[in-house]
């Protein structure tokens, strides 16, 4: 087991380094000179060419690509991702202060998704080919077909502007605050993000439970007189939920993509909003920082998915 964990971690580190090289090369391929990017256009006067050359040398931009990469990578792993071209603040700090809101949004959404998916998937599996099952299928298909940002706009129109129940944007009321206030701001984006994630999860729970229900031990439990609730709840459902941990882990990066979009719609001050703003202002260091952050998240989720599967289900042979 220990050898397995170590090997998976090493593989993931190698992959992370490869991604780092990819991102680095992309930045190099991007149009525009980084020094010119850092200087405000209004400060750019005639005769500043010499200054730019000096800055280039000072920043090491004239060194061989490999040397530049090595330096950049060492900085990056020690947490120094450079400074934003726009606000001049260090990128790692910018990302870190955005991490909390994004984690709050995603974890609430994940909770909502599971609260929808497990009961709905269970009922759909037990009552196969009935109205409930068809409704669950329609819901899964619906939420993957309707873009979440459009749902967000519709929700703002209905619940904020027409009914006035919920605030339309931000994370808290300026001047106000407190937990209840944040909760009110959280409901709409988290519910929509959760709904989008619930679609595939419901399908998964249903399919997995149907497989379990045809297993021998279920027939045995029924033959021994177990009530349907007991057979499903204590036997089949438990087993069918084991792989769900893996599926959830795999879905987290996809949820992050959904969060990026919804943060934009609801002006939620998370990492996605930061990234979209950085792209629109060509703030390269922030974009790179965001890319590396996401890459790390994806790799960690993949690793946890592998490990969780091995830990939860002892039948899985570690190789």
């Amino acid at each position: 087991m220990a050898a397995f964990v170590v090997r998976r971690i090493l593989v993931n580190i190698v992959v992370f380094i490869l991604i780092g090289i990819g991102v680095f090369l992309l930045v190099r391929a991007a149009p525009g000179d980084p020094v010119r990017m850092m200087i405000r256009p209004e400060d750019l006067q005639e005769g500043s060419e010499g200054f730019i050359q000096a800055r280039r040398a000072e920043l090491g931009l004239d060194d061989p690509v490999l040397v530049q990469y090595g330096r950049w990578f060492l900085d990056a792993v020690t947490g120094d991702l450079g400074s934003s071209f726009i606000s001049r603040e260090p990128v790692s700090g910018l990302l870190l202060e955005r991490l909390g809101p994004t984690v709050l949004l995603m974890s609430t959404a994940l909770g909502i998704a599971l609260l929808i998916a497990i009961p709905l998937g269970t009922i759909a599996a037990v009552r196969r080919n009935t109205g409930v099952d068809y409704a669950a299928a329609a819901l899964s298909l619906g939420v993957i077909s309707v873009p979440s940002f459009f749902l967000g706009i519709v929700a703002i129109y209905l619940f904020s502007l027409q009914l006035g129940w919920l605030p339309s944007s931000g994370m808290s009321t300026p001047g106000g605050g407190g937990g209840a206030d944040i909760l009110e701001h959280l409901i709409m984006p988290a519910a929509i993000l959760g709904l989008a994630a619930a679609g595939p999860l419901t399908r998964y729970v249903r399919g997995s439970l149907i497989d379990e229900l045809s297993a021998d031990y279920v027939r045995t439990a029924e033959a021994k007189g177990g009530s349907p609730v007991r057979v499903v709840g204590r036997h089949a459902l438990r087993n069918s939920l084991i792989p769900l941990i893996t599926i959830v882990m795999i879905n987290i990066p996809q949820m992050l993509a959904g969060a990026v979009v919804l943060e934009q719609v609801f002006a939620w001050p998370g990492m996605g909003q930061l990234a979209v703003r950085a792209v629109n202002t060509q703030d390269y260091p922030v974009i790179v920082g965001f890319a590396l952050y996401v890459a790390a998240l994806v790799l960690i989720c993949n690793l946890l998915a592998d490990l969780a599967y091995a830990v939860v289900d002892p039948r899985v042979k570690v190789t």
Binding site: V15, V23, L26, V27, A29, A30, P31, I250, P253, Q254, L256, A257, V260, V261, A275, V276, A278, V279, Q282, Y284, I287, F290, A291, V294, A295, V298, C301, N302
Partner: peptide
């Protein structure tokens, strides 16, 4: 598998952000 686990929106954000 790697590509599949990366959310495509993030990939495009990075590509579009760096290459225009």
């Amino acid at each position: 598998d790697m590509m599949l686990s990366f959310p495509n929106i993030v990939v495009v954000i990075v590509l579009a952000g760096l290459l225009g």
